[in-house]
Design a protein around this nucleic acid. Structure first.
Lengths: 191, 191
DNA sequence: GGTCAAGGAGACCGATCGGTCTACAAAAAT
DNA sequence: ATTTTTGTAGACCGATCGGTCTCCTTGACC
């Protein structure tokens, strides 16, 4: 059974927006590679912009699956789950369909002052950092807010570096850096 | 005295490519805001793509000024110079003309497989990491290659986070993370 | 003062953009 | 079996894209 046109469009757009860029991807190519009529795209999504919003939602869902299902499923302690997040990142980088984070990429190629895209990316970032923070707090870190900001920065750095270098193993660099951050913060507590 | 058309074009392109995106910036807007004739752009640069290459060169020059002039000018030791790099980053973020790294942004909005843009960004990255590595070695870090990769990742993370959040103080987060990395590595040596 | 290159203003080109619309086939619902 | 929905194929629209070209002005140089 072949997926519904709506799903096919979403998956094709997700792939093309990330691998080729959003502006560089015309609707003609999306519908051709999705094997779908032009009218169907506009019946389902109304505009290219709304299709992009759907891609945003899809990638956000991936992150929430990580936090709400995969991480708890490990049974590890908070520190272990934070580090396991980087294993999930590596898995993403290795998937063959990784060409950067669609939020970051979208901000990069849209107007940064007054545009709607940056607002959506900020929302996403805020929600991710909430989840991160609760892990950091559970790990018993001293200055949890600072450690969370550090980890968030490392995650973004790993994503961008993986996009530029096309080398999935940068996730391990991120993981080691995260360990430095956490262990330094835990040391500060003991002392 | 007003700058030469060539300079005006380069500065305008640098600003617009970063703040609005490369594909989203038409040559009509570049020449309008540069106050220059369309023909002049094509006399000087030949194409929009070549203008982008010139913008790449300009941003690379900024980094090399940092490494070859600003950092040695501090007179600090290697660890201090590495940390001072994040003060330079903060200065960049605060400049009002910061809208992300043009290399990263360009990769984000161009084809990632087989395109020429990613190659240029990789070259830039490699040259920056060379400079970083020599600082890390001078700092006396144990596994200098690993520490360099970590620092490079943190730099990219700071740049991207500053672009998305428009908050220059993330440079301080990056600086603190860099300190975690270096101190952890120096600790490993002592032990 | 005459010459000539540099640059501005803007018409113009083919291609492509996002988006709309019509015509028709397949399938689902009744 | 008939109606209604869903989707495809593709013509078509105005706008904009990057790039070329002509015409004209300006200012530096001899």
């Amino acid at each position: 059974m072949t997926s519904a046109p709506e799903t096919k469009l979403l998956q094709t757009a997700q792939r093309l927006f990330c691998s080729e860029g959003i502006h560089a991807t015309g609707v003609a190519r999306i519908i051709r590679e999705a094997g779908v009529a032009r009218k169907t795209l506009y019946d389902k999504y109304g505009s290219k912009e709304n299709l992009l919003r759907a891609v945003f939602r899809a990638e956000a869902d991936m992150w929430f699956r990580w936090f709400d299902q995969d991480l708890p499923g490990t049974g590890a302690d908070a520190r272990g789950r934070i580090l396991y997040l980087f294993d999930l990142l590596q898995h993403w980088f290795e998937s063959g369909s990784f060409f950067g984070c669609v939020f970051i990429n979208a901000v990069a190629e849209h107007e940064k002052e007054g545009g709607w895209v940056r607002g959506i990316a900020l929302d996403h970032r805020r929600r991710i950092n909430e989840r991160l923070l609760s892990l950091v707090v559970e790990a018993g870190v001293e200055d949890a807010d600072l450690a969370t900001e550090k980890l968030s920065l490392v995650i973004d750095g790993a994503i961008v570096t993986a996009m530029v270098t096309a080398n999935p193993s940068v996730a391990a660099i991120g993981r080691a850096t995260a360990a430095d951050i956490i262990d330094h913060a835990l040391l500060g507590r003991a002392h």
